[in-house]
Amino acid sequence: MKLTRHLAAPLCALALTAPASATEGERIQITGEIIDTWCYFSGVMGGPDAVVGSAHHTCALWCSAGGIPVGLLGEDGEVYMVLKIEGDDQNASGDTNLNLASHEITADGMLYKRDGLNYLVVEKVVTDHGITNLNHEDYGVVPGFAIPDPKK
């Protein structure tokens, strides 16, 4: 059966949007902050500018240790869900993710895209810049209970 113009268009759209399992990645180098994605995406602790950086560091540790997925918040504003870092595939509560919580890193690796999300396999942390987003100057500590009151 020949494809008519009316049929061909949706089938082309299908080809573009259908999930492709285990797709080929694209090499990229990107700089950004290792964040906890649940707080960032859900807004449960506040707006996106408040749930990153030094203000949110303790919570980022809690979330990473608790198995919340970590992402790299790129300078382009995109979030790249981290699948591996330098061969460590323990992306649920792993030590490598925990050690980099809130750090700005420059990463070289492979980018995969699937159903609206970016996925990143970091083959090399080119530079670990440490914690550079000093947003505690604007937000204090987020959430407020992250630091127990020393007087109590």
């Binding site: 399992s21 285990a22 797709t23 990645g25 997925p69 869900m81 699948l83 591996k84 595939d89 323990q90 992306n91 649920a92 509560s93 792993g94 492979m110 995969y112 699937r114 996925y119 396999v121």
Partner: peptide, 21 residues
Amino acid sequence: DITCEVTGDCPDNCGDGNRQL
């Protein structure tokens, strides 16, 4: 196992709790 699904790297038992599902 999301890493398996996206990249094709597929250990047994979805990574045994070490990988995001």
